[in-house]
């Protein structure tokens, strides 16, 4: 069932950006949370359009599709999105605005608007998913040239 749902989500996502932009538009990326409780699909929007990378010192948005892998499935009740530069011991200079929309049981959509990478280098994006009892992190790196 989960697999079918996953395929449907991916097909819908694929169809939607096929309609909106050329075929080489960046796809959704997928990452498992750090204890495997969630699958997080994400993509970047720069000036409202899907993009492979953000632009330095320009605000961008991260779109998230979050799905529980648990049994029973938990539903996110809150999501935090943040980013930091581990090598530089600091994070972003701005606070993004996060919106969460819960969908069917075990899934949610979220956007983090106003993300801004002010320096080149490795950024670690952290998505903290709260199911009402624990907060579990999903993370990935974006290297800004």
């Amino acid at each position: 069932m989960k697999l079918i749902l996953c395929v449907i989500v991916l097909l819908v996502a694929h169809a939607s950006h096929d309609a909106a932009s050329p075929r080489d538009e960046p796809r959704w990326n997928e990452v498992a949370s750090n204890d495997g409780s969630w699958i997080v699909r994400w993509r970047l929007l720069v000036e409202g359009k899907p993009a492979e990378l953000p632009l330095a010192r320009k605000r961008f948005t991260i779109e998230l599709q979050i799905e529980s892998t648990g049994d029973p499935q938990e539903t996110p009740t809150a999501v935090l999105v943040d980013a930091q530069m581990p090598e530089h011991l600091h994070g972003m200079n701005v606070a993004p605005i996060i919106a969460l929309t819960t969908g069917a049981v075990g899934s949610a959509l979220a956007t983090a608007e106003g993300m801004l990478f002010h320096m080149s280098g490795r950024w670690e994006v952290d998505v903290d998913i709260d199911d009402g009892t624990t907060v579990e992190r999903a993370q990935w790196n974006i290297t800004l040239p």
Partner: peptide, 14 residues
């Protein structure tokens, strides 16, 4: 020593 930077490949890495 710091952890080495992520691979020089631009873009997203997990």
């Amino acid at each position: 020593r710091k952890k080495p930077d992520a691979p020089a490949v631009k873009g997203a890495t997990q």
